[in-house]
Amino acid sequence: MPKLLIVGTGYVADLYLRSLKLYPEIEIAGCFDRDAARLSQFCEYWSVPAVDSLEALLARGTPGDILVNLTNPASHFEISRIGLDAGLHVYSEKPLAMQMDQAKILNEMAADRGLLLASAPCSFLGEAPQTIWAGVREDVVGPVRLVYAEMDDDFISQAPFRKWFSESGAPWPAKDEFEVGCTLEHAGYYLAWLLPMFGPVRTVVAASAGLADKTDVTLDAAPDFSVGTLFFDSGVVARLTCSILAVHNHELRIIGDKGVIEMDECWNNAAPVRMRKRFALRRRLVNAPMARRLKLKGPTHAKLGRKGAAAMNFALGVVEMRDAIGDERPCRLSSDLSLHMNEVTLALQSAGEHGGSMAMETRFEPVSPMPWAEKLAR
């Protein structure tokens, strides 16, 4: 079984370690962070081994182990490149890279070396999106035409974020968050769901803007609002909105010929999935006021209770990569899927006021659902 080597012990690393506690059979061979004090605090809290350099960390692994890249987004490319060069599979936090040419280099390296490469988010492997996808496959609302996806998180620059700390004491990385931008940080939470369901995006028509004053935190803030219309090769069209200004809204609405599949919170693996049939009542068109709950047959996956703003198992992607290695099969979170998600996300982020239409160059092979999500319960 491959061991994990963790680089980066900041805020998000606690979410991973809390989730990895659900899988005691997974060995964490070592952790490294360039902040020695933070590394010590993290490793003492979680009782995992610390090493004092990246070289020492790599020395603890063997080819075929997994490097888990939880560093600052600006470091993702270089750390992942080093990991692949060392013969390690790499699971990276989002984005895969801050620039598309860097993401392509990683993709090519992984392919050339026969290694797995994937980037977060992994929530697509969770119960709620797998339930939605089963409903789409079973045609419960007829052919899907349109998707509305919202990733709005309220006016974060006015929030008391300096009081936000992770479980082991890391401060929320406000400067990084604002400089990377909410689109690169959050668009993937729905892109990682929609891409496996509906296939590659052919065209992105988008706009983005920086609207809130963040000069007390950073002078290099990225756009804090983006909206994109995604035209999928399959014919489905989706509107995806990201902001850290608009009132909190994580709704997803999948609109078909016969009704709507709806879900209210993508940061909850077990969020209820509902379906409303559409019908004519006298002279009116009505979406059923009483929604039907969609559920899968049998058990799904290990879940965490709510911790902070999310109720997500952050280890699902690492576990999927581990299982793919052990089963000698393709990983559901493939390098090509991560590359395509990176391209779509950057198109949304960089659109600006005159972004217009952007044709996507990358594609990926179809993704299979989880084995426990093949059919809905009846």
Rank of each mutant, 00 (worst) to 15 (best):
L15C: 13
L15E: 09
L20M: 13
K21T: 02
L22P: 01
L22G: 02
Y23H: 10
E25S: 09
I26N: 05
R38L: 08
R38M: 04
L39S: 04
C43K: 08
E44C: 02
Y45T: 04
A50V: 08
A50G: 14
V51H: 06
S53R: 11
A59L: 10
G61R: 02
P63V: 14
I66G: 06
I66N: 07
T71W: 01
N72H: 14
A74H: 09
A86N: 04
H89D: 00
H89K: 13
V90D: 06
A97P: 13
M100E: 13
L106P: 04
L115H: 07
L116S: 03
P121N: 08
C122P: 00
C122M: 03
L125M: 12
L125V: 09
Q130D: 11
Q130T: 06
W133H: 12
G135Q: 05
V136C: 11
E138Y: 06
V147F: 12
V147W: 15
E150P: 04
E150I: 08
I156Q: 07
P160Q: 08
A170P: 06
P173K: 00
K175Y: 00
D176P: 01
E177V: 08
T183E: 03
L184D: 02
E185M: 01
H186C: 02
A187V: 10
A192F: 11
W193G: 00
W193D: 15
L195E: 09
M197S: 13
P200Q: 01
P200K: 08
T203V: 14
V204Q: 01
G210D: 14
G210F: 04
D213K: 03
P223A: 12
F225Q: 07
T229K: 02
V237M: 10
A238K: 06
S243Q: 08
A246Q: 05
E251R: 15
D257I: 07
K258D: 15
V260A: 12
E262N: 08
W267A: 02
A271T: 12
R274I: 00
R276K: 10
K277R: 03
F279W: 00
R283Q: 12
N287C: 12
A288G: 04
A288S: 15
A291P: 14
A291M: 13
R292M: 15
R293Q: 13
L294M: 07
L294Q: 02
L294A: 04
L296F: 10
K297I: 10
A302M: 06
K303Y: 09
K303H: 03
L304D: 00
R306W: 01
K307Y: 07
K307N: 13
M312V: 15
V319H: 04
C331V: 06
D336F: 00
D336R: 12
H340D: 15
T345C: 09
L346D: 05
S350F: 07
A351Y: 05
A351K: 05
G355Q: 12
G355K: 05
G356A: 11
M358N: 07
E361I: 11
T362N: 15
M370S: 08
P371K: 12
P371E: 00
E374V: 00
K375T: 13
A377E: 14
